[in-house]
Amino acid sequence: MPRLMLTDDSWKLLSRIMYLTGRIYKKPEHRMTLEGILYRMRTGIPWRDLPCDFGDWSAVFRRFNLWSKKGVMAEIFKFLSRLNDAQWLFIDGSIVKAQQDGANVKAPNKQAIGKSRGGNSTKIHLAVDSGGLPLHFELSGGQAHDVSYGESLVTSSPKGEVVVADKGYDSQALRDLIKRRNAQHVRPRKGNSKRGNDDIDWCMYRYRHLVENAFLKIKKYRAIATRYDKLARNYQSFVALAFSLMWLPMWVD
Rank of each mutant, 00 (worst) to 15 (best):
S130G: 14
R117K: 15
S130D: 09
R175N: 08
A144W: 01
S152P: 00
D166K: 06
V163H: 01
I178L: 06
Q172K: 14
I178Y: 01
D176Q: 15
L174P: 01
D170A: 01
G142Y: 03
S116W: 07
K179D: 15
I178H: 00
L126I: 07
V163I: 14
G150C: 00
S121W: 01
N120C: 10
I178N: 02
D146P: 05
K159T: 10
A144T: 13
A173Q: 08
S116F: 09
I178K: 02
D170N: 05
R181V: 01
A165T: 13
P158V: 12
L133D: 01
T155D: 06
D176E: 13
E161S: 12
Y149R: 01
Y149C: 02
T155C: 12
L177G: 03
Y149D: 06
N120L: 02
D146K: 08
G160Y: 09
A165P: 01
Q172D: 15
H145E: 15
P158Q: 13
A165F: 01
G141K: 12
G119D: 02
T155Q: 13
N182V: 10
S152K: 11
G142H: 06
R181D: 06
Q143K: 11
H125L: 13
L174V: 13
R117F: 12
V128D: 03
G141A: 14
N182Q: 14
K159E: 11
S157K: 02
K179H: 11
E151A: 14
P134K: 15
G168C: 07
Y169M: 06
L135V: 05
Y149G: 00
G132F: 06
P158T: 15
H125Y: 13
V162Q: 07
K179E: 14
V164I: 15
V154P: 11
K167H: 07
Y169N: 02
S116A: 15
V128L: 14
S121D: 00
H145I: 03
V163N: 03
L133H: 05
S156N: 13
L177P: 00
T155Y: 04
S171D: 03
L177K: 12
A144I: 14
S157V: 13
Y169E: 05
S116N: 10
A144K: 09
Q172P: 00
G160W: 11
S140E: 03
S148C: 04
